[in-house]
């Protein structure tokens, strides 16, 4: 597998000016994400993981440093529709059906009628929601709505998927199921995924690379290349390798925390 860098950050700094003084959200963040990676970002609140994701998406502008997506600036990548973004809440429009919601980006991007219908069908199958295209969001459970939101992000074939704590509001049983499905999706579509989470087991289970971050100022404490095989059943979470990586993650979190205490 070729190691092609498609997201590259160098000495990224982002300071917010607020009423209570400047907030150093990101400090000297440097990271490379390769094609086909599944990278998780984990850390406590305020460590900058969501901010970093938003920088990649071009939704925030860094105060200094460089960041390149597919060789372009994040803004250019955004205009070129290089990625799909999944938020913490499903954010589906209640006045459109599920199918209508998935068509939203396709309409904006100017896809033709037949192609839109075809894509809707395809991505609904990918997330196991085939046949739900005429239902309304409020008729679906939380987990199903979030799956629809992921389908929407897949509809226009962006190579990169940026996900900001997408399963945070769901219960653990549903979450496990969705984790499995996400891994299968990743294997099938070979996309590059950047995933922000609060949950240590989720981060380790899903990723090929785990980035541990700590707050005040937001920075990277540790980058762990996962030694787990790409094909993982859920009970790999009880294996000794998994537990060892978990220890390493916890250590990274603790050192980050103790710097501030």
């Amino acid at each position: 597998m070729s190691q092609q860098t498609i997201i590259s950050a160098r000495n990224l700094n982002l300071t917010f000016t607020t009423n209570d003084g400047p907030v150093h959200a990101l400090k000297d963040v440097s990271l490379d994400i390769n094609k086909g990676d599944f990278v998780s970002f984990i850390g406590p609140s305020g460590c900058g993981k969501t901010t970093f994701l938003r920088c990649i998406a071009g939704l925030e502008t860094p105060t200094s440093g460089d960041i390149a997506v597919n060789g372009m600036t994040p803004d250019q990548a955004r205009q070129a529709r290089a990625y799909g973004y999944v938020f913490q809440a499903a954010g589906l429009y209640p006045w459109r059906t599920i199918g209508g919601n998935i068509k939203l980006p396709l309409e904006i991007m100017g896809f033709g009628k037949a192609e839109k219908a075809q894509r809707v069908k395809r991505v609904l199958e990918l997330v196991d929601l085939a046949g739900f295209d005429r239902k309304f969001p409020w008729q679906l459970s939380g987990g199903m709505q979030q799956r629809a939101s992921i389908a929407r992000a897949l509809a226009f074939d962006a190579d990169i998927l940026l996900m900001d704590e997408p399963f945070g509001a769901l219960d653990e049983i549903v979450r496990d199921h969705l984790n499995e499905q996400l891994l299968q999706l990743w294997a099938r579509t070979e996309k590059t995924i950047a995933f922000v989470t609060h949950s240590i087991p989720e981060a380790i289970y899903l990723s090929t690379k785990i980035v541990v971050m700590s707050p005040r100022p937001g920075r990277i404490s540790d980058v762990i290349e996962s030694t787990l095989p790409r094909d993982r059943p859920l009970d790999i979470r009880d294996s000794p390798e998994f537990i060892e990586i978990a220890h390493r993650v916890r250590d990274g979190l603790r050192t980050g925390h103790s710097d501030n205490v």
């Binding site: 071009g58 205009q79 973004y85 809440a89």
Partner: peptide, 22 residues
């Protein structure tokens, strides 16, 4: 909400599509 407007930005949608669709 800010989140809904951000979603439109990730699609590179300009003022008019955002106004009419959201």
């Amino acid at each position: 909400t800010a989140m809904q407007r951000d979603l439109m930005r990730t699609y590179g949608a300009g003022y008019w599509p955002t106004l009419l669709k959201l």
